[in-house]
Simulated assay, not measured.
Amino acid sequence: MRMKTFLACLLVLSVSVAVSNAACYFQPFKPVNPGDEIKGCYDSEGELHEFGSEWKTANCLECSCFRDGISCCSTYATPVGYDEEKCVSIFNKETCTYEVVEKNDHSKTCPVYGMVG
Rank of each mutant, 00 (worst) to 15 (best):
R2K: 14
R2L: 13
M3E: 08
K4L: 15
F6K: 07
L7S: 10
L11F: 13
L13E: 11
V15A: 11
A18S: 12
S20E: 07
A22Y: 08
A22P: 00
A22L: 03
A22D: 02
A23G: 10
C24G: 09
C24A: 05
C24Y: 11
C24V: 01
Q27F: 07
F29D: 07
K30M: 10
P31Q: 03
P31C: 02
V32W: 06
V32D: 13
N33L: 14
P34R: 03
G35H: 09
G40Q: 00
Y42V: 06
D43L: 08
G46Y: 04
G46C: 05
L48D: 02
H49E: 00
G52L: 08
E54K: 04
W55Y: 13
T57G: 05
A58P: 01
C60N: 05
C60Q: 03
C63I: 01
C63E: 01
S64L: 02
C65N: 06
C65P: 08
F66V: 04
R67N: 09
R67A: 05
R67E: 13
G69H: 03
G69Q: 01
C72I: 09
C73W: 01
T75V: 06
T75M: 15
T75H: 03
T75Y: 06
Y76G: 02
A77N: 06
T78A: 04
P79K: 05
V80M: 05
G81H: 10
D83K: 09
E84N: 08
C87V: 09
S89D: 14
K93W: 12
E94Y: 11
E94K: 15
T95R: 08
T95F: 10
C96D: 02
T97P: 01
Y98F: 15
V100Y: 03
V101T: 07
E102A: 14
K108L: 15
T109A: 10
P111V: 13
V112S: 11
V112M: 07
Y113E: 11
G114I: 08
V116I: 15
V116E: 14
G117L: 11
G117S: 10
G117Y: 13
